[in-house]
Amino acid sequence: MKASERIINEVAQGLRDMETAVSWFSSLEQVEREAVLLELVRYSMQAHATADDGREGVSRSGVKPTATPAVLIVREPVLESRGTIAGLPPAEHVKAFRVLLATFAVADTRRRERECRGSCTHAWHNLA
């Protein structure tokens, strides 16, 4: 499991706090940050994140609801919005990371509780 996958899933499962993840993300080079944002988009698609998950994610992210990534994550269709968030300029990367990660955490928690409850074999769902 690569570092980004582990960190993202640890935050989603409450094993790592957002601030530690943001510090790690901020230390990456721009091209690596862009790759992590795209990875988060893929993960949120796999977890079937919704606009409602986005609203909850924004409230957990520490990002103002009027910030560009926060506005985009609650728009429909969600898939297009997530791709747009990943493509925001570098000055927006940390806010985009916070919003995408918090939204993924909401969607992934629901997925683990409903679909994988007690029988999940995904390595990333069995970190604890």
Score class of each variant (00 low, 15 high):
A21Q: 11
Q13V: 06
S26P: 01
D108K: 09
R112M: 15
N9A: 14
R55C: 03
M18L: 13
E115W: 08
G14P: 12
E115D: 10
A96M: 01
R111N: 10
D52H: 04
E29A: 12
T68A: 12
V74T: 10
E92W: 01
E5Y: 03
V99P: 05
R112Y: 05
T103G: 13
T103P: 07
Q13Y: 09
G83M: 09
V31T: 15
D17Y: 06
H93L: 08
L15I: 15
T50C: 01
A51F: 07
W24R: 01
R111T: 03
L127V: 12
L37W: 07
L79Y: 00
L88E: 10
A102H: 05
E34N: 11
V106P: 07
H125F: 04
I8V: 14
I8Y: 04
A96W: 02
G83H: 07
A91F: 01
A47R: 02
G83V: 06
R112A: 14
A123K: 15
I8F: 04
I73Y: 04
S27H: 12
V41I: 03
A47F: 08
E5G: 08
E76R: 14
G62D: 10
T50H: 00
K95N: 15
M45G: 07
E34Y: 02
P69M: 05
V63G: 05
F97N: 09
S26Q: 05
E56H: 06
E80Q: 12
D52P: 01
G62C: 03
E5M: 06
N9W: 05
M18D: 04
G87Q: 13
D108W: 07
A47Q: 01
E32G: 08
A12V: 13
A21N: 12
T68S: 13
K95L: 13
F25N: 00
N9F: 13
I7S: 09
L127E: 12
D108V: 03
D53G: 05
I73T: 07
A128M: 10
E113P: 03
D17L: 05
T20G: 12
R55S: 07
M1H: 08
E34P: 02
R82Y: 11
P77G: 14
P69G: 04
G118S: 07
K64D: 15
R112F: 06
T68M: 14
R111K: 11
E32F: 02
T109G: 15
P90I: 03
V63E: 06
M18R: 08
P77D: 15
T103A: 14
S26A: 11
H125C: 14
T66C: 11
P77F: 09
T103I: 13
E10K: 07
G87I: 05
E32K: 07
S81R: 07
E19Y: 02
G54N: 02
W124A: 10
S119E: 03
H125L: 03
T68L: 14
Q13A: 14
F97V: 08
T66S: 15
L15Y: 10
P89Q: 05
G54K: 00
G54A: 04
T109N: 14
P90Q: 10
Y43Q: 06
R98F: 07
S4L: 02
E34Q: 11
W124I: 14
T68Q: 15
M1E: 10
Q13H: 11
E34S: 11
Q46R: 15
A105N: 04
G83T: 03
R55T: 01
A70Q: 00
G54T: 12
L101F: 00
V74Y: 01
N126K: 14
S44P: 07
Y43S: 01
L100G: 03
E80D: 08
L101W: 00
A70G: 01
